[in-house]
């Protein structure tokens, strides 16, 4: 028997881990969206949420390290699968088309490497943008009465200010739209990588994957879109 490391590096193992990391990242996105939606809560809810995260201390570092590991592992696997495909078919077809039927070839499944790479580049930008606030003036601080009067970064003001910039708002929206494509194939494919058979259940999972991808990403898209359209003064945003 191969060692576990060797097994996870085999063609079956690589795909298994793409599925595991992909599911891990999807679960993270659900949590991320739930957190983001607190921006529509009472006036301090978002800052309380971000402040709570930041005050987790060492635990936060552990979580962040885990996320970085999942992202990088997933991206490295995706890229290595894509590179192997070039090696396995050095000379392509003059004409190529799908036969349809049970095939899952689609714009989504054929562009995983593109949507994934955009997500990776976006992620670096996104962390510099909102975690470290590198592209905007200092966000200032607020006193959080509901959290015992502590002083915290006013990230809510930063988010609301940044999304009034059309370039940023629509840049984010475009990336999220691409993420719909990634998940429309990914959320079904991950379970197939873990051993789900083709059949009735699989069809339902594919339908569920489409719905999940659209609902989740519309959730993410709603925030910049709403802030941009209302100039940060919509009735959903409490002052």
């Amino acid at each position: 028997m191969p060692s576990l490391i060797k097994a996870l590096n085999s063609q079956v193992g690589r795909k298994f881990m793409t599925g595991i990391t992909g599911i891990g990242l999807m679960l993270f996105l659900i949590g991320h969206l739930a957190g983001n939606l607190t921006i529509f809560g009472e006036s301090q809810a978002f800052n309380v949420y971000t402040h709570t995260l930041e005050s987790l201390g060492p635990l936060l570092y552990v979580i962040e390290a885990g996320l970085v590991f999942f992202f990088l592992y997933h991206a490295i696997l995706g890229i290595s699968i894509w590179r192997q495909k070039k090696k396995a078919r050095p000379e392509g077809y003059d004409t190529y088309q799908t036969k349809g039927g049970p095939s899952h070839q689609s714009l989504a499944s054929r562009s995983m490497i593109i949507s994934g790479t955009v997500l990776l580049v976006f992620l670096v930008f996104h962390i510099m943008h909102f975690k470290y606030g590198l592209f905007s003036p200092d966000e200032g601080t607020v006193i959080l009465e509901s959290a015992g009067g502590v002083e915290a970064r006013d990230l809510r003001a930063l988010v609301i200010a940044e999304f009034q910039n059309p370039l940023i708002a629509f840049g984010y929206i475009a990336v999220m739209a691409l993420a719909i494509l990634h998940l429309a194939h990914g959320a079904w494919s991950a379970f197939t990588s873990l051993g789900m058979k083709h059949g009735e259940t699989s069809k339902k999972v594919q339908l569920g994957a489409y719905i999940f991808a659209i609902v989740l990403m519309l959730g993410f898209i709603f925030i910049p879109l709403y802030i941009f359209l209302t100039g940060g003064e919509g009735s959903l945003i409490a002052y």
């Binding site: 799908t98 039927g101 095939s103 499944s109 054929r110 990588s193």
Partner: peptide, 11 residues
């Protein structure tokens, strides 16, 4: 190559 679950093979 690796299998990306395209399912074209079944078709």
């Amino acid at each position: 190559g690796d299998c990306s679950n395209f399912a074209e093979c079944e078709a």
